[in-house]
Design a protein around this nucleic acid. Structure first.
Length: 167
DNA sequence: GCCAACGTTGGC
DNA sequence: GCCAACGTTGGC
């Protein structure tokens, strides 16, 4: 990954969030109150660190549908609230419950995002992997990559949006 | 549904 | 602190 400045576009950083549409889809986001949602349930430390420490208000998000045909980037969103404690870790009835987390020492964090644009043409994983110049290093298409919250370079962001019919 | 690639846990 | 066993992710 390049220098920090290289990762910014107009002063903001860019990310890709994966979601299984059977759990929460981009349409669900569009249908949400204020088209916002708290991104709960991330239970991976690397992704947690990004959510807690790196992702800031105003950052851009590519919304990606995983484990569903077609797997694709389907829209964009904007971060409207930075890292805060994920309350589901304290709820024994939640699938995201973590018995080792306590309110004094929370483990898991999330951010709040607001829908920005649906892509006129979803950009499929297949298309992203088809050898697009400039996407060779995109985290999403690296072998074995399964980070559910991952950084996106401005150059990659622009290519994906263009493929999606924006800009 | 399968399973390879990762990540986490826990015994030692 | 190693690493085997186990659990999870996510493309296929």
């Amino acid at each position: 990954m390049g220098a920090a400045e290289d990762m910014r576009m107009d002063g903001r950083r860019l990310w890709l969030f994966k979601s299984e549409p059977s759990v929460f889809s981009f349409d669900d986001l569009l249908a949400s109150k204020k088209q916002e949602t708290f991104w709960e349930g991330v239970r991976n430390y690397q992704a947690r660190n990004l959510l807690r420490d790196e992702i800031a208000v105003g950052d851009g998000v590519l919304f990606y549908h995983s484990r569903f045909q077609p797997m694709a980037v389907v829209g964009t969103a904007v971060v409207v609230q930075a890292g805060s404690v994920d309350p589901y870790q304290f709820d024994p009835k939640s699938p995201y419950y973590d018995s080792k987390a306590s309110k004094d020492a929370p483990r898991w964090y999330g951010v709040t995002i607001c829908a920005d644009k649906a892509l006129p043409r979803p950009v499929t994983l297949q298309a992203l992997k088809a050898g697009v110049v400039g996407l060779e290093d995109m985290v999403l298409i690296q072998k074995g990559s399964r980070l559910s919250v991952q950084p996106v370079r401005p150059s990659e962001w622009k290519i994906v949006l263009k493929l999606g019919g924006i800009g």
